[in-house]
């Protein structure tokens, strides 16, 4: 059996770890609230954007637009959104792995947003488009604007034939769902929950094809931004869960160590008594 002092030292060390994980959990929980608010507040924009977009697309089906045309090439770019920081369970790994495993036959280049994803992808020898970006503490719309405009430019230069976005959808604080969304060429899937809004004939100003020029970049920006926002909330949720588990494990460990400590103490006392008794016996 370990010495009492060793056990005591271990208890102390586990306790301080527990304090840290508990604090991290609280911080994540507090931040999660504001991140959740951001998810809710950014929803109307992306929803409306999609509606307007679908409306115009329904009307403008015959339209030729370079960003709508499907190309036959095999080169794909993956925008992979992860967190900058770890300690959130399998959150980052799940996203990065999905990005690597998705459509294995294409020639891939990755554009990571978030340090963890970049490290993961780079470590496994995947080709990165550039140094990637940090996700930052708060979703940053300006970053998204720059990234998307850059992507469109490269897409038009035919550096790649498709662009995918990989991120984690925020379902609830306990559940995140890594998913892949196609960005380019833009295809607008018909709305599943069509709330009886039959496509009304619209007046467009300027013409629908000119409107698309302005609309597509913004549509993409709203999608990527939404990914960033959901990912941010998901990261915090995952961290909260991970840290909660860590805290619970630490508590369990302390409990069993305390038990061990008490046993050792009891054994020491018993032994001492036995020695005293034995000594007294010998003197008789």
């Amino acid at each position: 059996m370990q010495g009492m002092r060793d056990i005591k030292r271990r208890i102390r060390s586990v306790k301080s770890t527990e304090q840290i994980t508990r604090a991290m959990k609280m911080v994540a929980a507090a931040k999660l609230k504001s991140a959740e608010r951001l998810v809710n507040e950014s929803r109307p924009y992306s929803r409306t954007m999609r509606e307007v977009f679908q409306n115009i697309m329904a009307r403008a089906e015959s339209l030729e637009h370079p960003l709508l045309k499907v190309r036959n090439g095999n080169k794909a770019c993956y925008v992979v959104i992860t967190a900058d920081r770890g300690l959130c369970g399998g959150f980052n790994t799940n996203i990065a792995r999905l990005a690597i495993e998705h459509s294995p036959n294409s020639e891939k280049v990755f554009l990571p947003i978030g340090r963890k994803g970049r490290d993961y992808l780079a470590f496994r020898g995947n080709q990165l488009m550039n140094q990637g970006y940090l996700a930052g503490d708060e979703p940053d719309i300006h970053l998204v604007q720059n990234v998307v405009l850059d992507l469109i430019k490269r897409y038009q230069n035919e550096e790649f034939d498709t662009v995918y976005l990989v991120y984690s959808r925020y379902v609830s604080p306990l559940t995140q769902e890594p998913r892949v969304v196609k960005l380019l060429p833009v295809d607008v899937e018909p709305e599943e929950d069509n709330k009886g809004t039959t496509h009304t004939e619209h007046m467009y100003e300027p013409s629908p094809d000119k409107l698309l020029d302005a609309l597509i970049p913004r549509y993409l920006i709203s999608q990527v931004y939404r990914g960033l926002v959901e990912n941010h909330a998901g990261e915090l949720g995952a961290r909260m869960t991970a840290m909660d588990n860590a805290t619970k494990n630490a508590e369990e460990m302390i409990e069993s160590l305390t038990l061990q400590y008490n046993r050792a103490r009891q054994a020491a006392i018993t032994q001492e008594i036995a020695e005293v008794v034995g000594g007294a016996e010998a003197l008789r």
Partner: peptide, 14 residues
């Protein structure tokens, strides 16, 4: 510049 009042026709512009 354009003004929109109630019961405007379906319309989209940048």
């Amino acid at each position: 510049e354009l003004a929109v009042q109630a019961y405007h026709t379906a319309f989209a512009t940048s």
